[in-house]
Simulated scan of single mutants.
Amino acid sequence: MRTAARDTRGAAAIEFGIMVPLLSLMVVSVADIGLAVYRKMQVEEAAQAGAQYAIARGFDTSGISSAVTSATNSTAITASPGPVQFCGCPTSGGVSSVGCGTVCTGGAQAGTYATVSAQATYYTLINYQIVAATYTYNAQSTARLQ
């Protein structure tokens, strides 16, 4: 009996069998985080592509929406809510919406801007039980057209 208690043959195999599920979960979790970050980057890129379309070709709701949805290889990205055109004045905190024809501080006329939005939902690879199984990413890009 004493020799069986001191026998360590096969201990590595048992340790390996215990650690494999934990290591596998860690690998899948890291891959899942990477895919979620990639989806977020795709949404941001799609909003930028829509704004660039509006700058190059003018405000066209269907054209901008098409540019957003075709900006990446993901079919989950939508142009939601739809693109919006408005008049505004640049400020230190962004663009403030004003009536068209308004004179901004500094004497310049209010410009025409477009705000483009993109949205997509990411579904985790496995259900972790302690975090949400879905994440909705939104991005918005505003560009001056005139």
Rank of each mutant, 00 (worst) to 15 (best):
S66H: 05
I130E: 07
I77G: 02
V98R: 01
Y113Q: 00
P21A: 09
N73S: 11
G99V: 10
V103S: 11
A4V: 12
Q85P: 02
S96M: 04
G94V: 13
A71R: 04
V43G: 04
T61R: 13
S24L: 14
A47S: 10
G10R: 03
T72D: 00
M26F: 11
Q52M: 02
I33V: 15
L22C: 12
A114M: 04
G94P: 01
A133I: 14
Q119E: 03
A4S: 08
N138T: 12
L125T: 05
M41C: 09
A114W: 02
T91S: 11
V28L: 11
V116E: 09
G111L: 11
G34N: 09
R6K: 14
A143Q: 09
T8L: 11
I126K: 07
P90A: 07
T72E: 00
G99R: 02
C89P: 00
P90T: 08
A118L: 02
T121S: 15
G107M: 04
Y38G: 04
A13D: 07
A11M: 09
R144C: 05
C104L: 04
A31S: 11
R2F: 13
S65Q: 13
S80E: 10
L22M: 15
T102F: 02
V103L: 08
N127V: 11
G10E: 06
Y113A: 00
A12N: 11
A51Q: 00
Q48D: 05
C100S: 05
